[in-house]
């Protein structure tokens, strides 16, 4: 029986996800690696985006992986913190902007 749902040691086992569906996993990892390669955006910029998204989707594995990746790509904790604020602002903004829907419905059904 597992003691916790998440274990840091499991991060290194990510490739094992291909065990029961190797073709799909290969396609995924090929795509994943291509996404993070330097393109119009640098690897450093992509790692910062990944770090922000990792916080938005609240994935502890991704936070662990992309904190290290950001530092190794040359970012500092101030830049990384700002990136997380971007994720937080979009997430809270998305919550708040739905208030317009609430208001529309409210207006429609209210006297």
């Amino acid at each position: 029986m597992m003691e916790t749902y998440y274990s840091p040691a499991d991060l290194a086992k990510f490739p094992e996800i291909g065990k029961d569906a190797p073709e799909l996993a290969n396609k995924f990892f090929e795509y994943y690696n291509a996404v993070f390669a330097e393109g119009e955006l640098t690897e450093r910029e992509k790692a910062l985006i990944a770090l922000a998204v990792a916080h938005a989707v609240q994935c502890p594995y991704c936070i662990d992986a992309y904190t290290g990746a950001c530092l190794e790509k040359g970012s500092n904790s101030a830049e990384m913190t700002e990136a997380i604020h971007v994720a937080a602002a979009i997430q809270s903004g998305a919550t708040l902007v739905h208030g317009l829907q609430m208001r529309n419905i409210c207006n429609k059904i209210s006297l």
């Binding site: 330097e38 530092l71 190794e72």
Partner: peptide, 9 residues
């Protein structure tokens, strides 16, 4: 942690 790639840094 590991250093940044020399060229990019």
């Amino acid at each position: 942690f590991l250093p940044t790639s020399q060229c990019q840094a």
